[in-house]
Write a protein that binds this DNA or RNA. Structure first.
Length: 719
DNA sequence: TCTATGGTGATTTTT
DNA sequence: TCACCATAGA
């Protein structure tokens, strides 16, 4: 069969990777080197050239979105539907396996998935029952600890103990797990760990999947954690094939348990691994690549890669030193306006920042100019409170034993069932080892509640009961529609004041459309449509924002920019303490991760990159004077231009700067004058640019720091 | 049980 | 600064 069309438009390295017959393949794919393309084409090649059914392939991606896109791309190449082809996240795949083998995995058939908010609630519940002081032991921290242990593959009995802290943490972890087991609740980490333990401890199941998945392909391999790595190698065994694609330089999720060292480990564990490097970049100009390369070179222990391009040099990187965050935002917006004036589009522009708090000043400046924009991040669809409430009602209809759902909605909308009553129900449930639902019924039957609570709980129980009956014959859409109405959620939010209530009602009706559009994945026929929908909501929280059709500027954190590309990119807040973040400066490992984040950010830019930092920044209400980020010093000076309000000049080393004495036009200052600044103290004006209120002066303070300050803001006093 | 007020503390995010 | 939580009064 002629498979040459699969190789069309691939370069040599890509071709080598796509058609490798090595049992283990490692593709080190630099930013913009066509990584996803290689995986998609490799799947096509395996199917067509090796004549292997898509059924025998397992493709793992990092996000659900990536999985959907991957599937689409492969189908495009093959010009055919893939049918029974497993392509998903580690969590999605683990979930599918657990649903099939729930019994062997020690779960109930209807086990529920906890998302992180649900998990936090369970942790809080456990802490309460253990009477743990939550000011000393914050639930968030405990949750973080538990997840970290699970990511590492450790059960409570494997956890390190010795000091009081880990002793206590392990104790809570152990209680938490007992509760989850009892109620058959599975958190995200548990999905992975339990699946690994399942195939590790059950030869029959392991052999089944080994026999099925002849080829395993993994994207974003640098983001795998311990359990995921062990899962992959176990599933591969000695016979099967594995292709891992990743970039150690783009590992930015170490803080979440990802081990980029898995890349190194892979070549050691699988001795005959073929390594292919993709270094030709199809995205950025040479200037941008050179700058990014020279920044990342400061990291140690890299696998080593140098990006290059056939594209032209390109424009130099612009560096702007703003006076404060408003000036920073103004520069960004002004530059964007110039950009569109030249006939470019707004959706070609991304503004990146290290932390979400920085988006505000930028947002305000954009709003002032009434430009359309979109902020990535924030709450996603299935994470919104009203949606989670509706889902909890739906879960209760599916199974009355779902305590998490029960607790969530028993008093939403308010039914007069507060903490006291709930405590009674909880104690009853604990004492008799049954669900909150059963316990409530028993309390009513035995009349063990105060009269008023009695009535409220009875009302809730019978409402839910009749709701379940009425809904029996309905399809998914009808059911969701009926439940959001009958639960009282719609009325409850309608009564809420202002915009807030209205969007909540809108979101609820959006949920009805989501249910209408929902299609049960082909491989999950054995599960009911309703259960499948519930799981989908937990495993894929949906997009952060509804798709906007208007062309808009994109604002996002450096983390969420990974995998994307834009002709014009701004990296803002390029300051010590912010980027690298102050909490990451001390530890070398963390600092290197910040540097990789910088590398990721820079390599998003296709044509033009602007780096912006600010002399002064309002953070948490107080003024901060940050020096410029160390990463800027790692960019060769000849690759960048220092932008001033009047134009651009080459970035100069401090000592090369000179000044000509004279007045700063239309201000009270002149060069050489001594001035006083509230924060920096006394200094001498060395240089200026612009005039009048927009003038900026360079002041050499006696503390030996030199700053560019805007006359309008700096409140300098002549002395 | 519901609502107002004050203390606290504050990266990055997907599943 | 601001958002979130916990606790105190209505």
């Amino acid at each position: 069969m002629d498979v040459s069309y699969i190789f069309q438009n691939l370069n040599n390295a890509q071709r080598e990777a796509v058609s490798s017959e090595s049992q283990s393949l490692l593709v080190l794919a630099g930013a913009g080197s066509g990584k996803t393309r290689v995986i998609a084409h490799r799947v096509a090649w395996i199917v067509k050239a090796l004549n292997i059914s898509p059924q025998s392939l397992l493709t793992v991606t990092f996000t659900n979105k990536a999985a959907r896109e991957m599937r689409g791309r492969i189908e495009e190449i093959l010009e055919d539907q893939l049918g029974d082809f497993w392509c998903g996240t580690f969590h999605g795949i683990s979930h599918r396996i657990l649903r099939r083998h729930w019994e062997e995995a020690g779960l109930r058939k209807e086990f529920a998935i906890l998302d992180s908010e649900d998990q936090l609630r369970v942790v809080k519940r456990v802490c309460k029952s253990l009477q743990i002081d939550d000011s000393k032991w914050p639930a968030k921290q405990i949750q973080w600890y538990i997840n970290k242990e699970k990511d590492e593959g450790r059960r409570p009995e494997d956890a390190e103990t010795g000091d009081y802290f880990s002793e206590q943490m392990t104790n809570i972890y152990s209680e938490y797990q007992a509760l989850c087991n009892q109620e058959s609740l599975v958190d995200f980490g548990e999905l992975l760990l339990r699946t690994y333990e399942l195939i590790d401890g059950n030869e029959k199941i392991l052999n089944h999947y080994r026999a099925r998945f002849k080829h395993i392909l993994v994207d974003e391999f640098q983001d795998t954690n311990e359990v995921q790595y062990k899962f992959l190698l176990l599933l591969k065994g000695n016979e099967n094939n594995i292709s891992a694609v990743g970039d150690d330089d783009q590992s930015i999720y170490g803080w979440r348990g990802a081990k980029s060292d898995n890349i190194n480990r892979f070549t050691k564990d699988l001795k005959n691994t073929q390594v292919v490097r993709l270094e030709q970049n199809y995205r950025s100009t040479q200037v941008i690549l050179d700058a990014a390369n020279s920044v990342i070179q400061n990291n140690s222990g890299r696998m080593g890669k140098d990006l290059w391009t056939e594209e032209k040099e390109g424009e130099k990187i612009s560096v702007y030193s703003a006076y404060n965050e408003d000036d920073e935002a103004r520069y960004v917006v002004g530059t964007i306006q110039d950009w569109i004036a030249q006939g470019n589009n707004l959706d070609e522009v991304a503004i990146l920042y290290r932390s979400n708090a920085q988006s505000r000043a930028l947002e305000e400046a954009i709003l002032r100019e009434s430009l359309p924009y979109r902020i990535y991040g924030g709450q996603r669809f299935y994470e919104r409170a009203e949606i989670k409430n509706a889902m909890a009602y739906i879960r209760l209809v599916f199974g009355k034993e779902d305590d998490a759902a029960f607790e969530r909605v028993i008093n939403i909308p308010p039914r007069g069932i507060g903490a006291k009553t709930l405590d009674i129900i909880r104690n009853k449930a604990k004492g008799t080892k049954q669900s909150l639902w059963m316990a409530s019924q028993e309390l009513i039957d035995l009349e063990e509640l105060p009269p008023r609570a009695m009535q409220s709980v009875q009302g809730f129980i019978s409402d839910m009961y009749s709701l379940s009956l009425e809904v029996k014959e309905m399809d998914l859409k009808g059911l969701v529609d009926f439940i959001i109405e009958r639960s009282g959620l719609i009325d409850y939010h309608k009564k809420e004041a202002g915009e807030k209530g209205r969007t909540r009602v809108e979101n609820l009706s959006e949920l009805v459309s989501a249910a209408d559009d929902f299609m049960v994945p082909a491989q999950e026929e054995e599960i009911s449509e309703l259960k499948s929908f519930i799981d989908h909501a937990a495993l894929d929280a949906g997009d952060a924002q509804a798709e906007e059709h208007e062309s808009a500027i994109q604002l996002m954190t450096l983390h969420s920019a990974k995998g994307l590309e834009f002709p014009l990119v701004f990296i803002t807040g390029f300051e010590e303490g912010l980027f690298p973040h102050r909490l990451s400066i001390e530890e070398p490992g963390q600092l290197e991760e910040e540097r990789r984040l910088c590398y990721v950010g820079m390599t998003r830019a296709m044509k033009k990159l602007h780096i912006v930092h600010s002399e002064m920044r309002n953070l948490h209400g107080s003024e901060n004077f940050n020096s410029v980020s160390r990463f800027l010093k790692e960019i060769p000076e000849e690759l960048s231009l220092e932008v001033r309000t009047g134009g651009s000049i080459p970035r100069l080393k401090q000592k090369e700067r000179s000044y000509i004495p004279g007045d700063v036009p239309n201000t009270e200052f002149k060069i050489g004058q001594r001035v006083f600044h509230d924060s920096f103290g006394e200094g001498v004006i060395l240089n200026y640019e612009g005039q009048g209120p927009n003038a900026r002066v360079e002041v050499n303070f006696d503390s030996s720091t030199t700053k560019w300050l805007m006359v309008e803001y700096a409140n300098l006093k002549g002395i």
